[in-house]
Amino acid sequence: MATEWKLFADLAERAGDKHVTVDAAPGDTVRDALDALLTDRPELEGRVLDEEGDGLRSQINVLRNGTNVREEEGLETELEEGDELALFPPVSGG
Rank of each mutant, 00 (worst) to 15 (best):
A2M: 14
T77W: 09
E51D: 15
L34D: 00
G27C: 07
N65I: 02
R64P: 01
M1N: 13
A25P: 11
Q59V: 11
L85S: 00
D35K: 00
R57L: 04
G94C: 06
P42S: 03
L85N: 03
K18P: 13
S58T: 11
L11T: 02
E81L: 06
V69C: 02
N68K: 09
D32C: 10
T21C: 08
T29E: 11
K6G: 07
T3M: 13
E73K: 09
W5E: 04
G94N: 13
G55W: 13
L75K: 08
R47V: 14
V48A: 01
T29C: 06
N61I: 15
G94H: 12
M1Y: 14
D10W: 13
E43Y: 09
T77D: 04
G46V: 09
L56A: 03
V30T: 01
R14S: 01
A86V: 06
G53L: 13
A25L: 12
E81C: 00
S58E: 15
A15M: 09
G93W: 06
L75H: 08
G53R: 08
E72V: 10
E51V: 13
V69Y: 04
R64G: 01
A2W: 15
P42D: 06
E81K: 02
E76V: 00
G53Y: 12
D50P: 08
T29P: 07
G27T: 01
E72A: 14
E72K: 13
D50G: 07
E80V: 14
I60M: 09
L11K: 03
E51H: 10
P90G: 07
A86D: 07
E71I: 09
E45F: 06
A36P: 08
G55D: 15
G74S: 07
E43F: 06
L34C: 00
G27R: 08
R70M: 05
F8N: 02
E81H: 05
V22I: 03
G82V: 07
W5D: 03
D17T: 15
L63H: 02
G82L: 10
L79S: 04
V69K: 08
L63A: 02
A12V: 05
W5S: 05
A9H: 05
G66L: 05
T21E: 15
G46T: 05
D40E: 15
S92C: 10
T67Y: 14
L7P: 05
V48G: 00
G46Q: 04
D28L: 14
